[in-house]
Amino acid sequence: MSDTTDAASETPTAAGATTLTGSDTPAPVPADPGERHLVEEAVEHRRPTPEGGEHGAHPTDAQYMKIALVLAAITAVEVAIYYVKSDLGLGFAPILITMAAVKFFLVGAFFMHLRFDNRVLRRFFVTGIVLAIIIYVIVFLLLGVFTSTHGAHS
């Protein structure tokens, strides 16, 4: 990606370093080469990284199209399973949910770049999903949805 090359061209130098604390006074540069190396390492650690490039490059257009083909194929299989569900007995619902989860993962990981972006973003999203699942499973349990009486309470 082009932004990756932008990042690579901005290699920091200790001589041109300034603080981020609001002051544009150059930071003192240690004379000792060993200490200077430590400063440069710290600068490299704190450098802005290109969006999405922390864990690797994003997929190419061709790869995006392949992922879309997989998603379309899974959708076609889902619809096919809907029509042959009588042959699958009770097992068809978990199969459909698993296939939906795979589609969810593919879109999230590749189209939303969660696989490549900073893991903090992934945690925010996963926290929302997990929280939603926990809360609504508790509600279902309270209302007896998973029991055979389906909420009966006498």
């Binding site: 901005e10 920091p12 603080t19 981020l20 604390t21 544009d24 930071a27 430590l38 400063v39 704190r46």
Partner: peptide
């Protein structure tokens, strides 16, 4: 270890 090691340094222009 030098006390001048500042991780916050960057070659950014202010603003």
């Amino acid at each position: 270890m030098a006390t001048t090691t500042t991780p916050e340094v960057l070659d950014e222009s202010p603003g």
